[in-house]
Each structure stands twice: as structure tokens, then as C-alpha cells.
Computed example of a mutant assay.
Amino acid sequence: MTFYVVLALLNGALIGTSRAVNGQLATRIGPFRASVWNHVVGFVLLTGVLFGLYGWAGSGSVPVAAYLGGAFGALFVAVNSYVFPRLGALNASLLVISGQVLSAVTIDCVEERSLPSALRLAGVGLVLAGLALPRIAAARKKPSAGKG
């Protein structure tokens, strides 16, 4: 279990780094061209890794709907490349993570056909509070208009 937790944390760090790199690339060549480069390089790299590990193993057993993940991933990178330079690293990451948490709870509730548990709702509340805290702190630092 510890291995998977460390792997997930490493993945999060790599996603953050990837967002920063793609954001910089997007400011130079545009978000959609940056997304294309991201996916072309990723495709070539993963194809090499998969061929190296498994050889050619056909794709007949993969349901057609599974390919939507690739389309969603491409859209995610393109949108993220567009908003990242405009919102900054912290705000963009917090909003993306908040969207992921909220959609994950919703998907779990639909699959389980039940309302979310108090623990899940508390987790969502903590994520949303984390999203609001930087804004509250920034508002406190600004001097009030009309005072002084």
C-alpha cells in the first residue's frame, strides 16, 4: 500500500511539473499547439515503453468507450495549457483538483446509488476551504479603501 501512496504522490508532483512546463510552452506557441506537442511526445514515449514491456498485443479487447479517456486527456491538457498561465500555478492546480474531487464524489455516488458519506462530504468541504483560504488571506492583506 505504501508503494501506491508514494507512486500517487510522485504522480502529483509530475502533474504539477507538467502543468508548469505546458503553461510555459503555451505562452510561447499557444495552448493547442502545446497540447499537440504534449500528446505527440507522450504517445511516442508510451508506445516505446509498451512495446518494450509487452510487444505487440493487439487492441481488440478494449471497449470503444475506453478511448474517450484519451480525448478527455487531450482536452484537459489543452484547457490546462490555456488557463495555467492566466491563473497561476496555485490557483489553476487548486481549481483542477477541486473539480476532480467533486466529480469523483459525484461519480462514486452515481455508481453506488447512494448519497455521499459524512466523511466524503467533510473531505469535499476541506478541499473547498483550501480553495478559499488563499483568497481570504489575500483579502486580509489588502488595505481597505476609505481607511487611512
Rank of each mutant, 00 (worst) to 15 (best):
residue 133 L to P: 01
residue 69 G to Y: 01
residue 133 L to H: 02
residue 72 F to W: 05
residue 15 I to W: 08
residue 2 T to H: 11
residue 96 V to K: 01
residue 57 A to D: 14
residue 99 G to S: 08
residue 142 K to G: 06
residue 43 F to I: 01
residue 31 P to N: 04
residue 80 N to Q: 12
residue 20 A to D: 02
residue 105 V to P: 11
residue 124 V to M: 09
residue 88 G to C: 07
residue 21 V to R: 00
residue 91 N to L: 13
residue 107 I to T: 05
residue 120 R to Y: 08
residue 108 D to H: 12
residue 43 F to A: 13
residue 13 A to H: 05
residue 108 D to A: 13
residue 107 I to C: 02
residue 78 A to Y: 01
residue 93 S to Y: 12
residue 25 L to E: 07
residue 99 G to M: 10
residue 130 G to T: 04
residue 83 V to A: 12
residue 115 L to V: 12
residue 18 S to R: 14
residue 147 K to F: 09
residue 136 I to C: 03
residue 134 P to A: 05
residue 49 V to I: 15
residue 23 G to E: 04
residue 97 I to D: 02
residue 137 A to I: 10
residue 22 N to V: 14
residue 77 V to P: 05
residue 82 Y to D: 07
residue 106 T to S: 15
residue 141 K to I: 06
residue 25 L to K: 07
residue 80 N to G: 07
residue 4 Y to I: 14
residue 141 K to V: 07
residue 16 G to W: 02
residue 99 G to Y: 09
residue 141 K to Q: 13
residue 11 N to V: 10
residue 87 L to N: 04
residue 116 P to H: 06
residue 33 R to P: 00
residue 117 S to I: 13
residue 120 R to A: 13
residue 91 N to R: 10
residue 104 A to W: 01
residue 95 L to G: 13
residue 45 L to K: 02
residue 61 S to C: 10
residue 71 A to L: 15
residue 12 G to L: 03
residue 114 S to D: 08
residue 100 Q to E: 06
residue 3 F to V: 14
residue 71 A to I: 15
residue 104 A to V: 03
residue 77 V to S: 04
residue 101 V to D: 09
residue 113 R to S: 14
residue 116 P to Y: 03
residue 101 V to I: 14
residue 121 L to G: 10
residue 22 N to W: 00
residue 98 S to W: 04
residue 108 D to N: 07
residue 137 A to E: 07
residue 122 A to I: 11
residue 145 A to K: 13
residue 21 V to F: 11
residue 128 L to G: 09
residue 51 F to D: 00
residue 55 G to T: 13
residue 53 L to A: 12
residue 134 P to Y: 10
residue 37 W to M: 10
residue 7 L to H: 07
residue 13 A to V: 12
